[in-house]
Computed example of a mutant assay.
Amino acid sequence: MNKNTIIFEALSRKPRQSLLQILSLALLLLLLAGCGAESSQKTQSSVPAATQAPETETITITDMLGRRLELEGPAQKIIALQASEVEILYALGAGDQVVGIGEYCNYPAEAMEKEVLASGSGTSIEAIIELEPDLLIMGTMDQSDAQIAQLENAGIKILVTDPQDLAGTYTAIQLIGQATGRFEEAEKMIGSMKTEFAAMQAKAADKQKAMQGEGARTIYFEVSPLEYGLWTSGRGTFMQEITDILGVKNIFDDLDGWLEISEEQVIQRDPDYIVTISMNFGEGPSPEEEIMGRKGWQDISAIKQQQVFHGDSDQLTRPGPRLVDGAQALYAYLYGE
Rank of each mutant, 00 (worst) to 15 (best):
A332V: 01
G177S: 11
G73H: 04
E187M: 09
R269M: 12
I245Q: 08
G311R: 01
T171Q: 15
L117M: 06
V99E: 13
V275Y: 03
L31W: 05
G284I: 11
D162N: 15
I219M: 08
E87V: 02
W297D: 01
A146C: 01
L117E: 06
G100E: 12
L28A: 11
D145R: 11
L246F: 03
G181S: 06
R294A: 09
P48A: 03
Y228Q: 09
I148Q: 12
E72G: 03
D270A: 02
S12E: 14
Q17Y: 10
V266P: 11
E288L: 00
T51W: 00
A37Y: 07
I251T: 06
N250D: 14
Q82S: 13
S124Q: 08
E132G: 04
M200L: 15
E241V: 08
K14C: 00
G311I: 10
L159V: 12
V98I: 12
G73T: 05
E227F: 05
T180C: 06
L81H: 06
M193S: 10
E110F: 00
A154H: 03
I7C: 09
M112W: 00
Q328H: 10
E264R: 01
L20C: 01
G100P: 06
A179V: 08
G191L: 12
A149D: 15
Q328N: 13
E132Q: 15
